[in-house]
Simulated assay, not measured.
Amino acid sequence: MLPIGISPTIVVEDLAPARTFYTTHLDGRLIFDCGWYIGLMFGENGPTLHFMQPHSPDHKLYQGGLTYNLKLADAAKVEAAHERILKAGLPMVMPLEDHPWGDRGFCTLDPYGVALYVYVEIEPSEDFKKFYL
């Protein structure tokens, strides 16, 4: 199997927080909304993220432990995103800083506790260069 795309779907009780959070804070655009399932796209033809309410006993509600890595085009965009998140009063799980593994980033949480790690690649430290394949 060779997928040509991967788009995660998070199962939650209430979709309203996702609609508001991702359109307000991450410039997501609703591309599908049937009431119990929504799809959001980031950018013109960028990545998508989906949320749905459970429709069978097999659809368990999201229980946490997920991190999305949101790579931005440049450091200025990361700085602007950081400022926007701070002004909105959203939780800051990790402050904006340079990391020796090769990125500059910060981490916040969405309304469901999904961690959103926003970053741009930078030169890794000598200690971390050996880990890149």
Rank of each mutant, 00 (worst) to 15 (best):
S56W: 03
V78W: 01
S125C: 00
A76Y: 06
G46E: 02
P17K: 01
A76S: 15
D98K: 13
V114E: 01
T23P: 07
D127L: 10
P47A: 15
H25N: 11
N45Q: 13
G46F: 00
N69L: 11
D127P: 09
G39F: 04
P8I: 05
V78D: 10
R19T: 05
E44V: 05
R19W: 06
P17Y: 05
P124C: 10
Q63N: 09
L90F: 06
I85M: 05
F51A: 00
K77L: 15
G28C: 07
G43S: 10
H50V: 01
N69R: 12
A16M: 07
E123K: 11
D33T: 10
Y132K: 12
L2K: 15
M92A: 06
G105E: 12
V118A: 03
V120W: 00
L49H: 03
I6Y: 14
L70F: 03
K77F: 04
G5A: 15
M1L: 15
N45T: 12
T23D: 08
Y119C: 13
A75V: 13
P57I: 04
H25V: 02
G65N: 07
R84H: 08
M94T: 14
K87S: 15
E83R: 13
V12C: 05
A115S: 15
E121Y: 09
V93A: 05
Q53M: 09
D33L: 00
G89H: 07
I4D: 15
H50D: 04
H55N: 04
T67C: 10
S125M: 06
T48A: 09
G64A: 12
P54L: 00
L26Q: 05
M41E: 15
N69V: 11
N69Q: 14
F106H: 08
L61W: 08
I10K: 03
K77M: 12
A16W: 11
L15T: 02
Y112R: 01
Y132G: 06
M41V: 09
L40K: 00
R84T: 09
